[in-house]
Simulated assay, not measured.
Amino acid sequence: MAYKFIDNYREKGARKRLVEVLRKKGIADERVLEAIGTVPRHYFFDETFWNQAYKDIAFPIGEGQTISQPYTVAYQTELLHICQGDKVLEIGTGSGYQTCVLLELGAKVYTIERQANLYDRTRWVLPNKMNYKANFFLGDGSIGIAAHAPYDKIIVTAGAPTVPGVLLKQLKIGGMMVIPVGDEKSQKMITVLRVGENDFEEMTLDTFRFVPLVGDKAW
């Protein structure tokens, strides 16, 4: 992938139009919309495909993965109610686009990716070319990163067959996880709130389609 780090008037205008599309689709959290409007999504695309960067679509990024649709990123992020300083575990770094949105909201992000090529690319691009600082890990996201638990929030950016219990144990009491759960064709977005040591409140929301969560506690 060839990167040219340019953020000119044309791209800024395209981001504003994308924000209006998301607002019309029901994203109401202005902080989330502002973060989407700030992150230069075209940085994650080869220059050849910059005309696709601010459309509300997912797009292939290699290794069988995609950069998520902006609506999906905004939807999951809105559910998390990120506060300044929240310690967030992101399962599935991918392109790093969702990571940047979380960082724009003031989260301290721990992000894990199982694909080595994506991991190498993202952990170099975000700090060195975009000035976004996160904690990057290579490994099986389905088992989380227990060494740095507990987390205020956990976001899973791939579809799981069930909610992995090992991830629930890495939430703080009062913490929340957002995860798509279903089969390999479609998933329901699930929020899980940890209300006690062994007590959780779960809510099932809208239908999405994510790439599969692959790992010991997933597919």
Rank of each mutant, 00 (worst) to 15 (best):
Q65H: 03
T66W: 11
T72S: 11
V101W: 11
R123I: 10
P127F: 07
N128F: 00
L103Y: 11
T77M: 10
I91W: 08
Y110W: 05
T93Q: 10
A116D: 06
T99D: 15
L105Q: 09
L89E: 04
K129G: 09
D86L: 01
E113K: 04
G139A: 15
N131K: 14
V73M: 07
Y97T: 11
A107V: 07
V125N: 03
V88H: 01
G94P: 04
I91D: 06
K108R: 13
I67Q: 02
D120H: 15
L79A: 05
L138H: 14
L118N: 10
T66N: 12
E90Y: 01
L105R: 05
I82E: 07
R114E: 03
T122Q: 09
W124G: 07
T111Q: 01
T93S: 14
V101L: 14
M130S: 06
R123A: 00
A116E: 13
W124T: 14
Y132S: 01
L79D: 02
R121F: 13
Y119I: 10
F136M: 09
A74N: 08
R114K: 06
L80E: 02
I91V: 15
L79V: 03
E78K: 02
R114N: 01
S95N: 12
V88K: 00
L105M: 09
K133V: 01
K129Y: 12
F137L: 12
H81A: 09
Q98K: 09
D86G: 03
V109H: 00
V125F: 04
R121V: 09
L80Y: 06
A134D: 15
L102N: 07
E90I: 04
T99K: 13
C83G: 08
F137D: 02
Y119K: 06
N135W: 01
R121D: 13
Q98L: 07
V101P: 13
G94M: 13
A134V: 11
D86P: 01
Q98T: 13
Q115H: 14
K129I: 05
L103P: 15
F136C: 10
D140G: 14
F137E: 07
Y75F: 14
L105K: 06
I67W: 06
G106M: 03
E78C: 05
N135F: 02
G92R: 11
F137N: 10
C83F: 04
R123V: 04
F136T: 08
N135L: 04
F137P: 05
R114G: 00
S95Q: 12
N117M: 08
I82H: 05
E104V: 14
L105H: 02
I82Y: 03
N131T: 11
K87D: 03
Q65W: 06
L102W: 08
V125G: 04
T122C: 13
V125A: 09
N128D: 00
L138G: 11
M130K: 09
S68L: 09
L105A: 10
I112T: 05
V88D: 00
G96N: 06
D120I: 12
I67F: 08
F137I: 10
L138A: 13
M130C: 09
